[in-house]
């Protein structure tokens, strides 16, 4: 089980708990604003983009190749970026704080 905290674009903090599945699905179930997950988590839409806070990026594992390619074309991506549909919930990520990224503008 893991507790995860989201900071939304309007600086609201919401902490949610999950057992399994992806962080994006957990966020959607709990109505976390700004995590839309339009593609259902198959790494196609980037509407689940978050920045991992507190220098804890490595706890989420590495970006996959496909994830990296998609983030490369995102103006708000940086070295803390993850697509949270690609993060699995596990004890490893308990206590993680994720900031919802700005909407991709073009």
């Amino acid at each position: 089980m893991a507790k995860i905290t989201f900071i939304t674009r309007d600086n609201q903090t919401i902490t949610v708990e999950g057992e399994s599945g992806s962080v994006m699905a957990l966020a959607r179930q709990n109505g976390v604003k700004g995590i839309e997950g339009e593609c259902g988590g198959v790494c196609s839409c980037a509407t689940c983009h978050v920045h991992v806070q507190n220098g804890e990026f490595s706890r989420t594992g590495q970006q996959g190749t496909i994830e990296k390619d998609l983030l490369e074309l995102n103006d708000h991506a940086d070295e803390t970026s993850r697509l949270c549909c690609q993060i699995r919930i596990s004890d490893e990520i308990d206590g993680l704080v994720l900031r919802v990224a700005e909407k991709n503008s073009f």
Partner: peptide
């Protein structure tokens, strides 16, 4: 159940499909 599927059927970038939510 293809898990990683970065398809572009609804386009990509600024003009990505506005009707995608309806279609899905």
């Amino acid at each position: 159940d293809r898990k990683v599927n970065p398809h572009v059927s609804f386009g990509f970038g600024a003009h990505n499909c506005l009707g995608a939510t309806h279609a899905r």
